[in-house]
């Protein structure tokens, strides 16, 4: 096995890309299972965040390893940055709307910064 041979590194990158894609797809699948099986809104939100951040990063690393071109990698990094900026905001909005419309029971919360403001 000759490590100076570029074909070996192409094969290694392809196999690593396949592994990353599979991990990302598995996280997406786990989000699907969680969103159906979990009992309440906050638990489901917890499941949804998996493919939004870690799953997306794993899959896009896989795509970058497979494409191996700098313009594509730049745009994939842009996708990750957008997702990291937007998904916390969206989750915050959904969670706050759930609390305000009484879909989240305050008794179940360990820390409740929304209703404990008077303390």
């Amino acid at each position: 096995m000759n490590l100076d041979d570029p074909d070996i590194w192409v094969a290694v990158a392809d196999v690593a890309a396949a592994v990353f894609l599979l991990l990302g797809a598995f996280l997406t699948f786990s989000a699907g299972v969680g969103v159906v099986r979990f009992p309440n809104l906050l638990a489901r939100m917890h499941a949804v965040t998996k493919p939004q951040v870690l799953g997306l990063i794993l899959m896009l690393v896989g795509v970058a390893l497979r494409l191996r071109s700098w313009p594509a990698v730049t745009m994939l990094a842009l996708v990750v940055v957008f997702q990291l900026l937007t998904s916390p905001v969206a989750a915050h909005m959904v969670g706050r709307a759930g609390l305000r419309t009484r879909k989240v029971s305050p008794d179940e919360l360990e820390v409740d910064d929304y209703t404990d403001k008077a303390d």
């Binding site: 990302g24 969103v35 949804v48 799953g55 759930g98």
Partner: peptide, 26 residues
């Protein structure tokens, strides 16, 4: 049962579309 549950289900759906496009590109 509520609109917010549908919202987060829609987030999962968006994630699956992103994943499918990524797999196709790879």
């Amino acid at each position: 049962p509520s609109m917010l549950d549908r919202t987060i289900a829609f987030d999962v759906l968006t994630s699956t579309i992103v994943g499918a496009v990524a797999v196709e590109a790879a």
